[in-house]
Simulated assay, not measured.
Amino acid sequence: MKLLHLAVGLVSAAALGYGAVCAGLYGFQRSLLYFPQPARMDVPSVRLPVPGADLQVSVRPVAGDKALLYFGGNAEDVSGSLPELASLFPEHSIFLMHYRGYGSSSGQPTEAALHSDAQALWDLASQSHSEITLMGRSLGSGIAMRLASQQASTQRLILVTPYDSIAEVAAAHFPWLPVRWLLKDRFDSAALAPELRVPTWVVSAENDEVIAAERTAALVQRFSPGVVRFTQISKAGHNDLQLQPAYPMAIGLAN
């Protein structure tokens, strides 16, 4: 009987501990998804007022109709990406959105807020540019995809290390937790893919330690035939694939 009571006690303690971990994940999940970064580079910026926040947008203006809207990773200072993007896209005006809480943007990031802010950035850029390319990296791929699904006039969509959904990525990292039930911000790109007709370039890193190549492949499989040009860069990781010689061609640019 004592052994039975001990076993019941241990099981109860384990269940309570597991429940506490799940509750902690639910309560603090956005601090695990978003890692706000300050703007470390002194680059030109404009302010973009949106409901509930005031956003910093790093910019590189160029005369003409072409513009690139860039949505970065969850721990990326997009001001640091401006020189590289300016080199890759010399004929495009470039707009890089600092998410809420990033750079000098105010507010707190949530999926709904970031999608709304992306639409506001489109509205800003489309005032002076009629040929808009959307580019999203890592977390930002889901934002770019949602915006492309809402803007049929998007010229091109570039997705770097994208995922099918954040829920699936989280489940791979925490297989012992019911993250698919707990997540608030799901960024379900796979649900959007079948309806997209925007010419799309998808780039995967073979050795991606953050978003497994399998998650990118699962997204690609959801697109209709002929929409996606897919490249997996061999031996590249999540944070260094842009340094590989194959990268410009992978995102639709000539070497």
Rank of each mutant, 00 (worst) to 15 (best):
D240Q: 09
L48I: 06
E209C: 07
V8L: 15
E168V: 04
K2M: 08
M97F: 01
D185C: 05
P90L: 00
T231V: 09
L253D: 13
L3Y: 14
D185T: 08
Y163T: 04
S58K: 00
L6Y: 10
G101A: 09
S130K: 10
P245R: 01
S149T: 14
P178G: 08
W176A: 12
R146E: 15
R100K: 13
S141R: 00
K184T: 11
D208L: 02
V57M: 04
D188Y: 05
A246I: 06
Q150F: 03
Q244V: 05
W201L: 06
L33E: 04
P199W: 12
G252N: 06
V62T: 08
F187A: 02
K66M: 13
M145D: 00
A246M: 10
R146K: 14
Q244K: 15
R100S: 08
K2N: 13
M41N: 14
A13Q: 07
V50K: 08
A152P: 07
A39I: 06
T231M: 04
L157S: 08
S153V: 08
T161F: 02
G27M: 12
P175Y: 06
L48R: 11
S45H: 10
E206I: 03
S81V: 02
G237D: 12
P44F: 02
D77H: 02
A20W: 08
V227D: 13
A15W: 07
P245M: 06
A193P: 03
L147S: 13
F35T: 05
S104G: 11
L96R: 08
A23V: 07
G80A: 12
L157C: 04
A23T: 09
V50A: 12
Q155S: 15
P36K: 01
P245K: 00
I158T: 08
G9L: 03
A171F: 01
S106I: 09
Q242M: 11
I143H: 01
E91I: 07
N255A: 15
L192E: 05
E168S: 11
P248H: 10
T200W: 05
S12R: 06
R186A: 13
V203C: 07
V62Q: 15
S58A: 15
G226F: 01
Y18R: 05
E206C: 09
D188L: 04
P225L: 00
I251D: 11
P109L: 02
V210K: 00
E209Y: 03
Y34N: 06
F28M: 14
W181Q: 10
P178A: 01
L177N: 05
L68E: 09
S130Q: 11
A15P: 01
R197P: 09
F174V: 10
Q242R: 15
A218I: 02
A13C: 13
A213C: 06
Y26G: 14
S138M: 10
A23C: 10
A246E: 15
I251N: 05
F95V: 07
A53V: 08
P109F: 03
A118I: 12
C22Q: 14
V203M: 04
L196R: 01
